[in-house]
Design a protein around this nucleic acid. Structure first.
Lengths: 250, 250
DNA sequence: GTCTGTATCCTGGTATGACCAAGGTAAGAG
DNA sequence: CTCTTACCTTGGTCATACCAGGATACAGAC
């Protein structure tokens, strides 16, 4: 009805059914002729217009669903969504999951994100952000002896930093990367807790980062955060190679 | 009939058919009980074992296909793939495409990635990387008066930096982000070219970055790169707001 | 005239069965 | 033992049918 020309042209275009339908919808979505909030015409009609059967059309719609660009609402219709970045989580998990050796590499990306975010945080953080950071900091102190709670608190603090940076993209990426890292770090946390010096380092470092943000000093904030990661990396290395040197196991 | 326990449990698990099948496969993929190279059992059989019809199963398989985790080979079967990070490109494009106001935000992420990558590059770059960087640099000089070629050369140089960082994750992210930025920056390039001072800045800055990498100085490399981005941002701002004030300035 | 309850229609969700084309493979020919 | 060939398997697609429940319009009550 609206775009018969395009559709007709599509019919002859290459592709094996699913491919052409997917390509068609993809193009429409990227080009913007289908905008968030729009409701697609019913599956039966759309399938007919595209010259494919309903199952095939549904394959394409499902595919778009997992990409987060459309939402199929039961007994309502298919509506175009503003892509929810949270699906990135799933995707990253798939993309990097199996390869355990990639963890260190993913960590590099996390460092990249956080170092940029902490700079932005130093510039953009609101009082509300300060409060959240302080709460997270307090939580780190409270849970310093609890491996599980401690790692959660640590994560929350770092997430608060990124949130304070007020960059949607950085937040999304950080979330996704954190998901991967959490999946595989489970085991190492206890190791880290074995070092006594670790505890003071954890608290001191985070406090310094917090201070730098509050002090509105992007340069210094990044510097401190980088050192924080470097030291953490050292601990990790010590724990991995020879855990004898600084072990405090009672 | 191999994994009846799991499957049976699945049957009762929540979900509306597609959901449960997708969740089932997803879990198998992530847990690693399905590894890259494995071939799934035929659709008909799998559908029967999972207690769904073939179209539904195919919806799930297609969904996994667009995520790049499996590959459906005509008349061969469904094979588990090692996820190809390049699908991230598609995904990012979808995720950030329409919202043009997000471009500046995506830029923050690109800066984050590159600043980390340039540090790694200063540490890890090989002679081969140096050569590629130098070629890219030369290309920038050559194409300094050509808007199209110039932006391509610029992009290539930055990509060479990230590649020299030898971090798969950073490379993937950078590629994806660049894709988004290229999509929407097309128009602005000419504007930038309007500034004469832009040309010298482009060449000088890139050379300084190159020198810092060759000099194996991560700290300085990041600093220079950051300045490079800041200056570029200034130009962009000038071009955007009032392009009269500093036009053809000296 | 307005409100409300109900019957109907429309929509997605799913299942079934069938047909096609071509890759794989094992049986049969040489 | 090698090569050809026919068959079986497998994904790709289609057409049809049925279900359940949201949306809605219409009819009846107030």
């Amino acid at each position: 009805m609206t775009a018969d020309l395009e559709i007709t042209r599509l019919r002859e275009s290459g592709g094996k059914g699913f491919e052409k339908v997917f390509a068609f919808l993809r193009e429409r979505l990227l080009a913007g002729s289908l905008r968030p909030g729009d409701r697609l015409i019913p599956e039966r009609d759309l399938a007919a217009q595209l010259g494919v059967s309903r199952p095939i059309l549904r394959e394409a719609l499902r595919a778009l669903t997992v990409l987060g660009v459309v939402e199929i609402r039961d007994r309502v219709g298919t509506i175009v969504r503003r892509p929810d970045p949270s699906v990135l989580n799933d995707f990253f998990t798939f993309a990097f999951a199996q390869q355990s050796d990639v963890v260190d590499d993913v960590m590099q990306a996390r460092i990249a994100i956080e170092c940029q975010a902490v700079r932005l945080a130093a510039e953009r953080a609101t009082v509300s952000d300060f409060e959240k950071l302080q709460q997270a900091l307090a939580r780190i102190v409270e849970t310093i002896d609890d491996p599980d709670g401690g790692s959660a608190a640590d994560f929350n603090f770092h997430r608060a930093i990124v949130n304070a940076g007020k960059s949607e993209t950085l937040i999304v990426l950080h979330n996704s990367l954190s998901g991967i890292l959490m999946r595989s770090h489970r085991g190492r946390r206890e190791l880290l807790q074995a070092f006594d010096s670790m505890k003071t380092y954890l608290i001191e470092d985070h406090r310094r980062i917090f201070d730098a943000i509050v002090g509105r000093d992007p340069e210094h904030a990044e510097k401190v955060l980088r050192e924080h990661f470097a030291i953490g990396d050292n601990f990790r290395r010590r724990a991995a190679i020879g855990e004898s040197d600084a072990r405090n196991d009672s």
